[in-house]
Amino acid sequence: MAQTASTANQTATNPTGRPPSKSRAKYFFLSPAIFWILIFTIFPLLYAVYTSFFSFRFGRFNQFVGLENYRRLFTDPNLHSALRVTIIFVVVTVTVQMVLGFGLALLLNREMRGRSVLRAIMILPLFATPVAIGYLSITLFYEANGPINSVLRVFGYGDVPWLSNPFWALVAIMIIDIWQWTPFVFLVSLAGLQGLPIDLFEAADVDGATGWQKFWSMTLPLMAPTLWLILMLRLIEAFKVFDIPASLTLGGPGRATEVYSLFTYRTALRFFDHGYASAQGLLLLVIVSIIIAVLYGRIRGIYEVER
């Protein structure tokens, strides 16, 4: 803040009454944030690259091992298991969230009472601390007399082994993730739908277009950039999922719900294998970068600002 204060002193008087020179001001305004991000992201990133070339054992640098940590990425069955679990998780949760969220938004995109209340309710899961929700889910999915199994029992599907069976444990963390993030897809889709030009749809009505025709040839193409944006944001977050498996299942039973981030976390802080963990982190960075590179082109339009 000292910086900006001195800027104020230097340019405090402006007797000419003309717009002041922008050349200095524009760097003073931008540089604090840039420096901050450089310090806290670029340096750690470089440090991660550096450590990935070393083997760490017993809490200290052991020796330079070259690409050994990267070679392990290709041969470690536990890593492959984590990657497979994560990909299944990502594909299922994101698909369900996109379909349900957009579907609901289409259904509820109309004049109706109580829409603002509904929006308020839908915001709640997004901001509910994920770890707390994971912890709460231990009681929700409680096998003996938790509420979910109690309800299922009424329909005759009593004792689902939610947390002790590898398949159902994965389903459980997916259900919680879907609970938390479907509202996000819904809210953003709804905001997007409400920004569509009404007169275009009125013109289509005049021309006698059916609901399906309007949906396929107008709503969907017009919503495409927003939907790609939602998809990108959801894919990135889903690949990094950590909190819910870490609190609900601890990656278990066995390794059934050990997602990528949890595996990396354990490599670094349980086994203190920092070099290998850095290599894993960089691999995730590459995966996420590819997602952004592929999808960013499609959404670019909505970030471009008119001047």
Binding site: F40, T41, P44, L45
Partner: peptide, 19 residues
């Protein structure tokens, strides 16, 4: 945008919430 979305996992041990 990419700062937020890309880096928080890799650098999780060093980054701060403000960043």
């Amino acid at each position: 945008l990419s700062e937020l979305k890309l880096l928080d996992n890799v650098l999780s041990l060093v980054l701060l919430n403000a960043t």
